[in-house]
Amino acid sequence: MADYQSCLAFLCELLQKYNRKRVMINENTGLVTDLGLSSLEVMEVIEQIEDHYDISIPLNILPDVNTVADLARKIRDINS
């Protein structure tokens, strides 16, 4: 089980190493629009989340994920 806030905290820390633009990362940060993640980097991030929570994240959810908050909610839902 992982609640939304803990997922959010994990993501904000994880995404720091992709923070080339040095933006303030919070739940409203866009993964592509603000951080500029490439498709390969998005998949790298997903793999690290999967390892951390011992879950598999279906590709089907990705079209609905734009912000850090979107991803945190998906992790919480898969974990529940």
Binding site: M43, E47, D54, I55, S56, I57, P58, L59, N60
Partner: peptide, 26 residues
């Protein structure tokens, strides 16, 4: 797979250990 309507999960390239983890999770 996108057209299939199935749940689509990637495993790391040619990595049976990663595939095994994902099968276990299912």
């Amino acid at each position: 797979v996108k057209l299939s309507g199935a749940e689509v999960i990637r495993y790391r390239h040619s990595d049976p250990a990663d595939l095994a983890k994902r099968l276990r999770r299912l």
